[in-house]
């Protein structure tokens, strides 16, 4: 009996670090951030509560509004293009091709590199004076223009381009794993029935790999809300505020503008956005799982 309780003690001892991390670093930080967002703190936290005043200020701030609308444009395009491009790449990879390992390596390598590297490479490739624009003009097309990176109404699409380059290989890898799980008999049956291959992919296979597509979507969506490094490296939020995003707004108000309460209100809004993505996803999954059981 004594030995048994001794072993139990070891279990709780082993769990101690993770409890500390969870309770102190994760849970109480979140609560603290929320509490500060309800105050008027500037540089240091002061606990004079003004309740949702900061949220009001935040939502009225043009800088925040721009950041949010940029993020929506970026997020919708990035996720849509990644899913379509990733799905097409996965289908092409699934055609018993030669050199599959090579293509897989090539499609996925940008995902191994950091957002900072991704941003800096594309900044150089798209540099209007030296990059693609200059190279095409050098071929004799004097009027060729591709300077979106310095155009305020176009720069956000450059962010999409760089992010798709970095992330679409991931979608391909996840969906390809799904395609490989599709029953070989299904393919035989559809061949006998003479159903066109693209129809099989869109109306039979796609629903089967829907859970993988959902996983990929969640991963992409969460990375959208977190978007920060890529923006800092690629455009610095510019030109003007054309590529500002909420995460960058929060960081600037925390460290450069010393507007701690406002920054934390922004962070809480980011959290709300993530919850708004995850909760419907969670219930959709449970619903699908229940339906599958019946």
């Amino acid at each position: 009996m004594a030995k048994f309780s001794g072993t139990r003690a070891h279990v709780y001892l082993a769990m101690l670090p993770v409890w500390i991390i969870v309770l102190v670093a994760l849970v109480s930080s979140t609560v603290w951030t929320f509490v500060i967002s309800l105050t008027n703190s500037k540089l240091l936290p002061v606990y004079k509560f003004n309740f949702f005043h900061q949220y009001e200020l935040l939502l009225k701030q043009p800088a925040w509004q721009v950041a949010v609308s940029n993020l929506i444009v970026f997020g919708v395009l990035f996720i849509a293009i990644c899913l379509v491009f990733g799905f097409v790449m996965a289908i092409m990879m699934d055609q018993r091709i030669r050199g599959e390992a090579f293509f897989r390596t090539v499609f996925l390598y940008p995902y191994a590199m950091s957002f900072v590297v991704t941003g800096l490479v594309w900044q150089w490739v798209l540099n209007p004076g030296f990059g693609i624009q200059a190279a095409v003009r050098g071929l004799g097309f004097e009027n060729f223009t591709f300077d979106w990176i310095v155009q305020p109404d176009r720069a956000i699409y450059i962010l999409v381009l760089a992010a798709v380059w970095q992330g679409s290989g991931l979608v391909m890898a996840i969906l390809l794993a799904g395609l490989r799980g599709v029953d070989e008999d299904l393919w035989k049956a559809t061949r006998i029935d003479g159903i066109a291959k693209w129809r099989v992919y869109t109306s039979i296979v796609l629903p089967i790999i829907a859970p993988m597509a959902a996983t990929a979507t969640v991963l992409l969506a969460v990375s959208v809300v977190k978007a920060y490094d890529l923006v800092v490296a690629l455009t610095g939020g510019g030109p003007g505020n054309a590529t500002e995003v909420p995460a960058k707004f929060v960081m600037e108000n925390l460290f450069a503008r010393q507007n701690v309460a406002l920054a934390n209100a922004g962070a809480i809004m980011m959290l709300v956005a993530v919850i708004a993505i995850l909760v419907p996803m969670y219930y959709a999954r449970r619903y699908m799982a229940q339906k599958a059981e019946v």
Binding site: L26, T33, A247, M251, L254, M270, V274
Partner: peptide, 10 residues
């Protein structure tokens, strides 16, 4: 899934 900005200041 929580954005890191939520934890940074604390």
């Amino acid at each position: 899934f929580i954005p890191y900005q939520v934890f940074i200041y604390p």
